[in-house]
Design a protein around this nucleic acid. Sequence first.
DNA 1: GTAGGTGCAAATCGTTTGCAGTACA
DNA 2: TGTACTGCAAACGATTTGCACCTAC
Lengths: 143, 143
Amino acid sequence: MRLSEKKITASLKRHGYKLTPQRRAVIGAIASSPDHLTTTALYQKVRQDHPAIGLVTVYRTLDILARLELICELHAGGSCRSYTIAAPGHHHHLICADCGEVIDFSGHYLTELEARLCRETGFEIEGHLLEFIGRCQDCQRAT
Amino acid sequence: MRLSEKKITASLKRHGYKLTPQRRAVIGAIASSPDHLTTTALYQKVRQDHPAIGLVTVYRTLDILARLELICELHAGGSCRSYTIAAPGHHHHLICADCGEVIDFSGHYLTELEARLCRETGFEIEGHLLEFIGRCQDCQRAT
DNA sequence: GTAGGTGCAAATCGTTTGCAGTACA
DNA sequence: TGTACTGCAAACGATTTGCACCTAC
């Protein structure tokens, strides 16, 4: 279950952001895609029914959405970020190094470890990043 | 315990890479720092006793060292990479969001999870990235 | 009406590449 | 000696910023 378009726009309003057609378009595009999209990919998609939108606006909208934790950011290996609608609760990613497919999985494998690290280092732990890199079945066959 | 400068140069030679003064300088700089350094920070440091070196050479050297797994790469949150001498065995990072301090810890907390993901998704898992973000004791006090 | 949002162009940042000269093995 | 390495400059992609105009509230 992922956040609906409605909930996202509502949350934007609640935080005092204006609801422009551009923002609706970005939210619509990201909400209608099951995959993680890079900013540029999302830009292409949004342009299909909103040709006048600027790439900058997409960046700014994504920035707001990420800050409100309405979308989730993925640091897939290299130097590019991609986004998808946030799923409630914490989750992690399994990424195919060849085709870029992303599988989400969730669980609390790390709470125990986190508690131990807190105790041993005195850190106040705010979050973590857990990603597996590998090759999906299709790409294995393709070799 | 971290790899010594000697072991690194030896490994470079063993893999057929030439041992130039520039490479020695980069290795010396990274080996003498206990911290993780970004490429640019490392470049500044190397220039202190090797002013003629080019940033490009630092990039290329780091690339080789990372490929040979002699140094380890850190994707600290944002879009910048930093490097430090590799510790033997696999390890993870605990990063202070305020001051950037990095604590290494090791363990095989993920092998079981990795096996389960393999089974369930058919992925061939090549590696993973596990980083905790938080605030160290000093920064907590500083608030 | 006005603060906030938009879009363009230009600036910036980190990183890579082409190429001619240089130096290690 | 020959191949690999270096350094410059230029290219590059992703992201940010300055600014004038525009629009949702």
